[in-house]
Nucleic acid binder design. Sequence first.
DNA 1: ACCTGAACACCGTTCAAGT
DNA 2: ACCTGAACACCGTTCAAGT
Lengths: 200, 200
Amino acid sequence: MPRHADPALPQRRRSQILEAARACFRERGFRDATIEEICAEARISPGALYRYFDSKADIVAAIALDARAEAEAALDRLSSEDRLLDGLAEMARAFFEAFDGDSDAALLSDIWAEAARDPVLAKALRARDRIAAGRVAAAIERAQAAGAAYPAFAPADAAEALLAALEGLALRRALWAEADIGDAVRRYRALALHILKPKR
Amino acid sequence: MPRHADPALPQRRRSQILEAARACFRERGFRDATIEEICAEARISPGALYRYFDSKADIVAAIALDARAEAEAALDRLSSEDRLLDGLAEMARAFFEAFDGDSDAALLSDIWAEAARDPVLAKALRARDRIAAGRVAAAIERAQAAGAAYPAFAPADAAEALLAALEGLALRRALWAEADIGDAVRRYRALALHILKPKR
DNA sequence: ACCTGAACACCGTTCAAGT
DNA sequence: ACCTGAACACCGTTCAAGT
């Protein structure tokens, strides 16, 4: 019998809890889902749960980062995409989709609300945002250098504006159950067009 | 002795409670402030408080709408301001200022989080947003008609983008305690410039 | 070493009783 | 008609006891 029965257990337990929590949050939202429910879903006791997470907020933070990471995955394609607008539109679509529907709409705003009182989450979100902004800025810079976008708007500032607008639009869309996603993406594309004036 | 001792009492009590709540929320945030604290601050009992508000969320909603109304007051000046960019910059400044500092930063995100689970608040926010967007769009349209802004971007879409970007930037600023307000306003002005290309 | 689940602390909300 | 404040319900977290 080894001293540490299973060195991978902690990681497995964390995943198990996170998956259960995701299901509960989807169903009832961050605030309304209870630890008891998460425990039932994960088939674990409250005592055990607190062995792997410091608090409910801690679980929320882990899920929040995950959710955004998923939404930002489309950024990877921005680097290989030479049509800047298509890349941005795809990023917007992924983001809208990640926070679409009643259940996930609340997630987007809850992430910010949670970050407002959890400095660790705020810092992590900021780090993610910086990476995203850096990628968008790099893509814009390439387009400008290739003469494919007008050069007057500093890439970093344009990137910041594009991400902030996406956030604001996603919040509105999510909370007001607006139109279909395709429409929102089209409007975002128009915004990017007017900001960047790409030549192709 | 009149049957209704004081017909203005309900309104007075509501104000009294809201003012106390504002103070408590400022101090400890929506989530952490307790009804008991608000009652103490308002010198009223919990039972009496629930006579004038249905729930804590109800109080939160009232304050949330107030906070945004204050931030949007600068919109009134957009109509009389013939320099569009100055008007937008002023609107941005008011918005950034309304949600500045540790205590009020959380307010901005809490408003959205609360709206995500309170349809009444969501509807009210949306109505406000429509009014704001209408005013900005009207200002843009006037500038375009006067040949003072380039006409390619539909006023309504440009207005929506400008408001969404302001929301996103304010969230970032509020949570990440960024730079000074002047700097944020300058960047917002640059964004508006690149979106609208006004000719004066 | 890991887990259980009863117990604790806290807080939003209600309601029987007062004036 | 309006208010009080004790009581209730609920839920995040802890901890003594188990294996």
